[in-house]
Design a protein around this nucleic acid. Structure first.
Lengths: 193, 193, 193, 193
DNA sequence: AACTAAACGAGACGGTACGTCCAGTCTTTAA
DNA sequence: TTAAAGACTGGACGTACCGTCTCGTTTAGTT
């Protein structure tokens, strides 16, 4: 049988929880199950029934935002493609996702099980996109095929995360542009090998 | 007046707190003021008197470890210098500092005031060292003087932090070596400009 | 119309609920709707549909036991009749009804509406029996007709309940016998008036 | 050493808890730790630290009332002494203690450990008083020395508790008087033996 | 034989209170 | 005057049940 018996899960409650989480994160206060339940007009057990941790709620809230999607425009230039990708990422971060991301990465340090889910549901997807951008460059002969693409991806995402989390320098389009450019130079050098 | 009156601060208590913090972090349990106080045989108010937050205790515990110091051997090759620097960093992380670092960065996301202190007392120092390594390369003509060194530092430290915090790939000497090599290639390409 | 349309009440469920209640009370654990529903294999709403409170279930479980009935053997001696009545009561209590009774009286303290139902369905019936025993004695001239029989009934039932609930002294046949005897002496004294 | 170190227990909190409990019981609402903590302006852990159950708080609240004390005026007549004792008890009950007593006895049915404390701290004391009244009568030859005084005490206290908890007939001075008189008659009969 | 309507099991819902942990503060005695 | 010990208020935790609700299913009597 397909349909389970019993009262079905309330879609309304699910959305209320995600919306409340969104709002609370934006307001800067401490995010707690209690506050979410109150704001969403939902019972605490309902939240515990469906999400194993605060971080999982935030992750779902992040993923449920349609505008979180990034459309990569594949141009023939690695530099332009990368710049577009990083600028879009940057915009999403400064538009609000930054708070979610910082929360998620912090929680991942305190909850090993969540760290695995975070990798699988979020960062692995993001890495896949960046990797395919690099793969294209390899195939066009713009990037040395001996280059470890994981290292390259770690450098690019790492720079973004590091600046986001440490806050020592601004997260802006200039940074995204320069980052793309620096990597692009590396690409050219490899082509010259 | 120089010497304050009254009972002086107990150096023994200070060390007991740092040792307890060290031990608790290593055991993987949740780090709390209560647990530290109990383990150190010290009253909670004593801890609150001397440290503004858990993270500050951990930071002091980290800095008080003599072996946390990294001695950079300046060779004429950027690649070798970098490799030495990154390998030493990696060793410190895998030897135990990794837990401290992850905790500190996580706390910095939840405590803006601590984030500032963390930058000033720890990451700024580390960046200074890496920056001087790059500066040497610029002066030797191995690195394009137009290259933004902050971006470069963000990429190197970022890759390390990103992998440490996400745990998607191993933190090992191979990684440190390949990371140094990738940056060194970039350097060579710039020299060729 | 007499026979209502639709599915009739399930006698099987009713009995399963009473049996589960019986079992759970005997096991000493806390009695809850949830536990009864689970044990009886019955939905919670089914229970709420037919019983207004836990206490009402327990009351019905108690009354549905055929062996809970007490047959009074009316002898010409008040003392013997009373002793038979109290000994039978005592046996029912020690055989298991004691747990039910304690639960019911406790609930009656927290639920005024149930207290009324408890009186009407249970204690009033029991008082009626004892009262008729006393009435017989009055008619035989063994008991002063000016004696307030309610007071007398309160003393007899009160002593039983008090000892059952407080547990300071054993609930046994000796107690039942001595209680009957003490009342019987009172009776004789009145006859002597 | 006599005086313990550390902050001493707050007498103010203790009194606030007892006062809040008193007030809440009087208002008829359900008595909970949460409500007491809120009303008393006290943290829940403070209550849990000092009292093992709600019933223990109510018991302490009851015992802390100076007016709960009953002074027995020993006259030469058992009947008068008893009547005085029971009337005072009745007055205390109707004046407010009745709510406490009903709550305590109900809780004693659900918490075996408390039932023991309740017996030791409250009912044993009350029984001691009544027993000494009967003992006096025995010594004066007004009461058969073979009479089991425990049974007698169970009948008197039982009648009071039974009527209080069941509520089938009024708790008033008339009841107290008639109860005393009925027992007194029994006494006379024994003297006549 | 198909239809109607109520009762059924299952289980999710909003909610209250539980009993606990820890935060951060306060009050006392000891050093 | 500071340290230690430990009790304090208070907030959130995660859980157990409450009493209600919404499903799809079952079971009679009615058409």
């Amino acid at each position: 049988m397909k349909t389970r018996v019993g009262r079905p899960r309330s879609e309304k409650s699910r959305e209320a929880v995600l919306a409340a989480t969104h709002a609370l994160l934006g307001e800067g206060g401490r995010l707690t199950f209690e506050a979410i339940a109150k704001r969403a007009g939902v019972g605490k057990p309902t939240i515990y029934r469906w999400w194993p941790s605060l971080a999982d709620i935030v992750l779902e809230a992040l993923l449920s935002q349609a505008d979180a999607e990034i459309k990569v425009s594949r141009s023939s230039s690695l530099r332009d493609t990368l710049q577009d990708f990083l600028r879009q990422s940057m915009q999403a971060i400064t538009a609000g996702a930054g708070t979610h991301l910082r929360f998620l990465m912090a929680q991942a340090q305190q909850d090993e099980a969540f760290r695995v889910r975070f990798r699988e549901k979020f960062t692995a997807e993001r890495r896949k996109v960046l990797r395919s951008i690099f793969q294209d460059a390899v195939e066009r002969g713009q990037l040395d095929k001996r280059q470890n693409l994981d290292i390259l991806a770690d450098m690019v995402f790492g720079a973004m995360w590091y600046r986001l989390m440490l806050g020592h320098l601004p997260m802006d389009e200039l940074f995204a542009g320069e980052l793309a450019e620096t990597v692009a130079k590396l690409v050219q050098s490899h082509a010259a090998d």
